[in-house]
């Protein structure tokens, strides 16, 4: 089952990458990043069956970091919305140079 789980994990990660590349709505891009983190977690859990419990411990850390990232990222999205009245990434080009 480990091979299949790694395959599912890779496909989910690819879907997340394509979502990040093809969408312009900042919230949807954020959710695509969450999907990629979930795909990696699936790999960790699958491999923890072979290599010991440390993989599951690391999944807990990944979830914590994902929660922190969601809180800060959504706060940034709220302040961007206050400024532009939408969350389209085309408007966010202040750092383009």
């Amino acid at each position: 089952m480990i091979q299949e789980a790694l395959f599912f994990s890779a496909v989910l990660f690819i879907i997340g990458v394509i979502g990040v590349l093809t969408r312009r709505n900042a919230i949807i891009i954020f959710m695509c990043v969450e999907l990629m983190l979930n795909a990696v977690n699936l790999s960790f859990v699958a491999l923890s069956r072979l290599y010991g419990i440390a993989g599951q411990v690391f999944v807990i850390f990944v979830m914590t970091v994902a929660a922190a990232e969601a809180a800060v990222g959504l706060a940034i999205i709220i302040s961007i919305f206050r400024h532009h009245e939408n969350v389209d990434l085309r408007n966010i080009n202040l750092m383009r140079g």
Binding site: M1, A5, N41, L42, A46, S48, I60
Partner: peptide
């Protein structure tokens, strides 16, 4: 994904997945 975690003997991670994610 939580169901897959439970099937791979990671019940605690499955529960956390549902609660946190």
């Amino acid at each position: 994904l939580a169901a897959l975690y439970v099937m791979m003997d990671a019940q605690f991670i499955g529960a956390i997945q549902v609660l946190v994610y």
